[in-house]
Amino acid sequence: MKKLTAAALLTLLALNVGAKDWTEVRLASEGAYPPFNGLAPDGSLIGLDIDIGNAICAEMKLKCTWVKQDWDGMIPALVARKFDAILASMSITEDRKKKVDFSNKYYASPVALIGKNGSPLKPDLAVLKGKKVAAQRGTVADNFATKFWGKEGVTIVRYAKQEEAYADLKSGRVDAAIADYWEAKGGFLDADAGKGFGMLGEKIYGKTADERATVGEGIGIAVRKQDKELKEIFNKGIAAIRAKGTYDKIAKKYFSEDIYGN
């Protein structure tokens, strides 16, 4: 009898490993990318990523705890089961998809054309023709500009570092710069260095399917490839907080603009 019970227990345990009943989830963030994720004076994680994560957990009745993890080791630590999901403003990319799965986006990461306030330029080939546009080599923004503008008579000037592109934009060597929107906002436009500069035209999400694929899907929650159920829970959670308005309330706390995109 005892043996049978033990066997039954073992079977139950084994089943549990296969289809985990998610009640407790450990979430990880970096804490070095405010306002998306930063550190409170007491060392705890705060920011938009954390608020979104907590809202999803409340919605889906999960008990969530947060782990602070450095960016470099983020994906390896997820794979090594140090935690169960990453909410660290991580872009959904093909490279990362080889190692982990992503939920649907919880905010968009468009690219943007940056220039002097009052510049007549905008992300439109007709006005950009013959102009010089700076980009950090190998970034999404560079790929976009190279693919859709570079062959049409726009000179793409490539830099090893984003700061160098801004330096040449400030000094007037280039007419505009193209960069990840959030990076440009946090790293340049909202900083002292970016005084007198702003986004030219609208954010670039991509108009055609090809353009949208180049800009990318946005920012998602990363989970281990085998944790399909958890991914589904997050997708439902994102949809739910969007529908109930919790999402907008959180977004408004940090930004006066729409961050989800379309």
């Binding site: 080599r137 190998g138 560079d142 490539r158 090893a160 040449d168």
Partner: peptide, 18 residues
């Protein structure tokens, strides 16, 4: 290539990133 010129090394960097 450190100052945006696409010399031999600059061309190689572009090819690498692409």
């Amino acid at each position: 290539s450190a100052v945006t010129l696409v010399d031999i090394t600059g061309a190689a960097r572009d090819v690498y990133s692409r």
